[in-house]
Design a protein around this nucleic acid. Structure first.
Lengths: 390, 390
DNA sequence: ATGAAAGCGCTAACAG
DNA sequence: CTGTTAGCGCTTTCAT
C-alpha cells in the first residue's frame, strides 16, 4: 500500500469530509434536525470519530516521547513512568490513535486472535460454545476467527491446509471435531496451543464431559423414583462427529441399571439421530406396545426427549403420569417443555477453553496441566419425571 | 519477535522434531503400528507437514527468481509467465510455504478478513446467516471474524470502539442490528465497506426482506383457503433488535385483510416475544374463547407458530381441522411440525452480503448500486393450514 | 516479464 | 525509565 488514495474506501457512496469536524456553534441546529448528516455538520461527532490513519510516530511527537515509549505505554509491556503513561494516553486519545494490528502482529508475533473450528454453527450446542468463547476472548482483547466446516470435505481441507496456517491465530479451539491424525499433525506443526472440546484427541488438551456419568445420573434419577422398565434412546454408530458419545451414554445407562440389579432389556433401546423427529419416531416405537411398555425414557439429547414427549402425547399418554422422560443438554426449549434433564454448560465450556488458552499464551506460563479436563454437568428436575403409576 | 526460541510454542507438551522427517523405509512398520507418533517416525507425514516458517525468500531462491516474482505468481497480482508461475508454485508447494498474512496485510493494506457483528449467535436466524457468510468467505479466501454482542452494552461498546477499529477487517457485515448514529459514524470513519442485513440503516447498504409483503402473503394464503377470522400473533414494540419487523408484519396482515374486505378485529391480535413459550401463551388466549374463536393464526415467527400448535393441542383442538396455523421463517423444526410457513433464506442472505462486499472490495468495482436490496421469501405449504371447518 | 529496493507501522533488543 | 534502531515478511513502485 504505497499511495492508496484516501478517498478510495469511502463507504456507502456518501463521502464525508472528516477533516471539517469543528463544532460550528454559531448556527444553532434547526429544530428537528437530527439526521446523521446534520449531526455531522454540527460537529457533534468530533470527539469520537477517530482517524484510523494516525500512526504511532504522530502520537510520539505529540506527547514528546519516542515511539518506543508510546508502544510500551499503550501495550503495557515494559516499564513507563505513570506521568509519561498519562501523557501518552492523552495524546493517543486526542489524536484518535488505534494501533494497527497488522504492524503490531508482524513485529511482535502475537496476533491477539484465536481460531475456533466447529462442524456446524447452526446447532444449539456449537453456537453456545462459540458464544461463550467469544465473550471470554473479548474480555481478553482477543478476536475470534470462526471456521465452520459445514461445507463438507473440500471446505474442511481448505481450512486445515490453508486458513489455519496463515499465521493468523495464536491458538486454535476445535469443537466436537474428531480430528484426523493428519489434521492434528498440521495443527501441531503450527506450533500453537490447541484445545479440543468434546472428546479426547490423542496428544491434544481436551475438555470433556463424562458421558458415562451423565447417562448414569439420568438413569439413577429414574431408578430412584421407582422406575425399573427404563428405555433408552441413543445414537446410531455413524454419528461420527461426537466421538463415542452415543456409546458412552448407553454404557452409563446400562451401568446404572446393573448397579440397581436391573437387567437391561434390548427391546428397550432405540437408536435415533439426536433430532426431535428421530426421538419422536423412536419413542413411538418404544411406547407403542400397550402391555410391556417402559414407564420411563432416558433420551441421549433434549431434542430426542422432546420428540418423545410429543410422541407420548400423540399416543394419548400423559407425561409424567404414564411415562417419565429425561434428556441431556438443558437446551433452549427444555424449560418450555418442563423437561427434566442433565444440564451441560456449553457457554462455560467455551469460556473455559479460552481461559486455558490465554493462560498458555501468557509468557512464562507454560504449564501443561492435565490433558483432559472434565466439565461439569447437573441434574435439573422439572416436570417430565415422576414416580411410576401403580 | 526477535529471538523467540523455536521450542517455545510446542503444543500439548509433546515435542516433536519436525526436522527428522525422512522416510526410513528400512524398518518396515510393525503391524498395528498406526499411532500418530509412530507414523511420524515412519516419515509418513513428510509430504504434508509444512513448516510455517519458510519465507518468501526461500521460495524465491529455490525457484531461482526474485521475491517480487514469487509474490506476483502466488497472489495473481501482476503478470508472470506461465512457466515461471509453475516453477514458483512447485517450489512453494515443496517447501510448504504459506504466506504470512500479517506481513502481507501490512504491506498491501488488504486483510482478507471481514468482520461480522450479530446480536446473538444462539438463534437459528443469526447462526444461519453467519454460516452462509462463512461459506462464501471461505470460497473467496477470506477469514471471518465474529463479534457477538450477547454480553450487553459494555461489550457492544467495546466492539464498536475498539475491536472494529484495529484495521483488522476489510469490511463489516452487521446483522439485524439497529445501529446508533454513533456506531454508523464510527463504521464510516473506518472507511471500509459496510453492509447491513435486516433493516434499513440510514446511509448503509442493506439487505432486507419485505416484512409487509411476507405477512401479506401468509394472510392471503389463509384468506384464499376461505378463512376470515384470522388472528395474528406479532411482537411487542420493545423487541427493538429487529427494526420495525413486528410492526411491518402486522401492517402486512392488516393490508391483506383489508384488501379482502375483512375488517381486522383488535381482539384477534396478540403480542408475544417471538419464542415458542410466548406463542403458546398468546395462542391459548386467542383460542380460549369457544364461540368467537379464530379459525386461523398468522404467527410472525415459526417458533410462535409452533407454540400455537401446541397450545391448540392442549386445548383439544386439532390442527388444521379446528384451526390453521402459519408461521414465518421456515426454521429448523418447521418441517417436523409440518408447519406451513413463509420461508426466508438466512444462509442466502449471508452469502449475498458477502458477495456484495467482495465485489466492492475488488479494485475498480466501485459501483454503489441500490442502497436497499430486497431478499427473497417463499410460501411453503405443509400440513398446518387447510380450509376452515364448515 | 522480471529484479532491486523502499517501505508498510510497529516492537524489542540494546544502550544509556 | 527512556531513546535509538534494526528488523518482522511481504508488496509494489520503478527501472530494466
Amino acid at each position: 500500500m504505497r499511495t492508496r488514495p484516501y478517498e478510495e474506501h469511502v463507504t456507502g457512496g456518501a463521502r464525508i469530509e472528516y477533516k471539517v469536524f469543528v463544532p460550528s456553534k454559531k448556527s444553532a441546529p434547526a429544530p428537528g434536525t437530527d439526521r446523521l448528516v446534520d449531526k455531522i455538520r454540527e460537529g457533534l461527532f468530533v470527539t469520537y470519530l477517530r482517524n484510523p490513519m494516525v500512526g504511532i510516530d504522530e502520537v510520539a511527537r505529540h506527547a514528546g516521547v519516542s515511539t518506543a515509549t508510546v508502544s510500551r505505554a499503550l501495550s503495557g509491556n515494559g516499564h513507563v513512568s505513570p506521568s509519561t503513561r498519562l501523557k501518552v494516553e492523552a495524546s493517543a486519545d486526542e489524536l484518535g490513535y488505534v494501533v494497527s494490528s497488522t504492524a503490531s502482529s508482524l513485529a511482535s508475533g502475537r496476533m491477539k486472535n484465536i481460531g475456533v473450528v466447529v462442524p456446524f454453527l447452526n446447532r444449539w450446542f456449537f453456537s453456545s460454545v462459540v458464544e461463550g468463547a467469544q465473550k471470554a476472548l473479548l474480555r481478553g482483547g482477543y478476536d475470534l476467527t470462526l471456521y465452520s466446516l459445514t461445507g463438507g470435505e473440500a471446505e474442511r481441507r481448505s481450512v486445515f491446509e490453508h486458513f489455519l496456517l496463515r499465521q493468523r491465530v495464536d491458538a486454535v479451539i476445535a469443537i466436537s471435531l474428531e480430528l484426523t491424525e493428519d489434521e492434528v499433525a498440521r495443527l501441531h506443526a503450527l506450533q500453537k496451543p490447541l484445545v479440543g472440546i468434546g472428546g479426547p484427541i490423542e496428544g491434544v488438551r481436551t475438555l470433556t464431559v463424562d458421558d458415562v456419568a451423565i447417562a448414569r445420573l439420568a438413569t439413577e434419577h429414574l431408578l430412584a423414583l421407582g422406575h425399573t422398565r427404563i428405555a433408552h434412546i441413543g445414537g446410531n454408530k455413524d454419528l461420527d462427529l461426537d466421538f463415542h458419545l452415543p456409546t458412552n451414554r448407553r454404557v452409563g445407562y446400562e451401568q446404572a441399571l446393573a448397579e440397581a440389579g436391573v437387567v437391561p432389556d434390548p427391546a428397550l433401546f432405540q437408536a435415533a439421530d439426536f433430532t426431535m423427529g428421530g426421538g419422536y419416531q423412536a419413542a413411538k416405537q418404544l411406547l407403542g406396545s400397550p402391555y410391556d411398555r417402559p414407564t420411563a425414557i432416558v433420551a441421549a439429547s433434549d431434542e430426542m426427549a422432546i420428540g418423545s414427549i410429543l410422541a407420548a402425547r400423540d399416543l394419548g399418554l400423559v407425561v409424567p403420569r404414564d411415562v417419565s422422560v429425561i434428556g441431556v443438554d438443558d437446551y433452549d426449549l427444555a424449560e418450555f417443555f418442563g423437561l427434566t434433564t442433565i444440564a451441560q454448560f456449553p457457554q462455560g465450556q467455551g469460556e473455559k477453553a479460552v481461559e486455558i488458552l490465554l493462560d498458555r499464551l501468557r509468557p512464562g506460563q507454560n504449564r501443561l496441566s492435565s490433558l483432559n479436563t472434565p466439565m461439569p454437568f447437573e441434574l435439573v428436575v422439572r416436570s417430565t419425571t415422576a414416580r411410576p403409576g401403580e
